[in-house]
Amino acid sequence: MDDYLESSEYIDWKHPLVVNKAKELAESVNDEDIVKQCFEFVRDSIKHSWDYKLNPVTCKASDVLQYGTGYCYAKSHLLAALLRANHIPAGLCYQRLTIESDGPPYCLHGLNAVYLQQYGWYRVDARGNKAGVTAEFCPPQEKLAFPIVDSAEKDIPGIWATPLPQVVKALTENKSVELVYKNLPDYHS
């Protein structure tokens, strides 16, 4: 579990902004309540970059918090950081989804897995709700933003302690939300 509690370049939970926000969200002594508070904060208070066409492009958890915006991947970095700052193991998960409708092109979608004492690893998706997209925290049932509906879509197996390289590349090499959208990362097994 140690890997899912570490601070890293992009899940920089030791940054003062992240530490302070994590403390603020941890009003409960119950880990499950803390997870819900952190999840709802990221889902509802951090704007999805593409939905709102907001720059700058963020990747580090502290930048997502500072600027209040991030693509799904960056939002998952912030949620992992807030949970880890509260000593709750959290990792990154990915789905491969179609971008526009059924069929190609495809891209990765970033979400989280959190270790809940009562249930084990549980996936949550703090992407941000909007018309047609609803994600909730309701363990043990997962209510993710996007169901798998196309034959080439899939839940990518595994829980990562750090972001996938293609995700970091998309968020650090593209300087606007439009460029990220044109260069969304994909996963080929």
Rank of each mutant, 00 (worst) to 15 (best):
I46V: 09
I159V: 12
P147Y: 10
K143G: 01
A80P: 10
V18N: 08
Q166K: 07
I156P: 03
E40I: 05
I46H: 09
G70M: 07
K60Y: 13
D44E: 15
Q118V: 03
L108E: 15
A61S: 14
E9V: 05
V19S: 08
G132Q: 04
K175A: 09
Y106A: 11
V19C: 14
W50F: 15
E40Y: 14
N129A: 06
H188P: 00
I156V: 11
A113K: 08
L164K: 07
L92F: 10
P56A: 13
A145P: 04
G70N: 10
W13Q: 15
K75A: 07
P157E: 12
L116G: 04
H188Y: 03
H15K: 06
R123G: 00
D63T: 00
D155I: 02
W121M: 00
K21Y: 03
F146E: 15
G120C: 12
H87L: 13
G128E: 06
L25W: 03
G158L: 05
L78R: 10
W13V: 12
T98P: 01
E173P: 00
R127K: 06
L17S: 08
H15V: 14
K23H: 07
N112I: 02
W121R: 02
V124C: 08
P163D: 15
R123I: 00
H188S: 04
Q66D: 06
D3L: 15
M1Y: 15
Q117P: 00
A22W: 12
V114D: 01
A152M: 11
L108M: 07
L78P: 04
N174E: 08
Y71C: 08
A85R: 11
A145L: 01
D150Y: 13
Q141Y: 13
I156M: 05
V19M: 13
H48S: 08
K21N: 03
H188W: 02
S151P: 05
A80G: 12
Y115W: 09
T69A: 13
A61F: 04
R84N: 03
S101E: 13
A61H: 10
P165Y: 10
G128I: 15
W13T: 14
Q66P: 00
S151N: 15
G120Q: 11
L92H: 14
P185K: 13
A81G: 05
A145K: 02
A22L: 09
G110D: 06
Y181S: 15
E173K: 01
K60F: 12
P157N: 14
V180K: 09
K14E: 12
M1P: 15
N112D: 04
E6M: 04
L5C: 13
V167L: 05
R96G: 09
S189W: 05
H87I: 01
Q95V: 04
S151F: 07
K169T: 02
V180Y: 13
K143H: 14
C72D: 12
D102I: 09
L108I: 03
Y10I: 03
D31S: 01
E24Y: 05
N129F: 02
R84L: 02
Y71F: 05
Y106W: 01
L184N: 13
A85H: 11
H87N: 07
A145R: 02
I99E: 11
L25S: 10
K154A: 08
P139L: 13
L108R: 07
D102A: 07
L25R: 06
Y4I: 14
S8G: 14
A131N: 08
G68R: 11
A81K: 10
Y10S: 08
K182M: 15
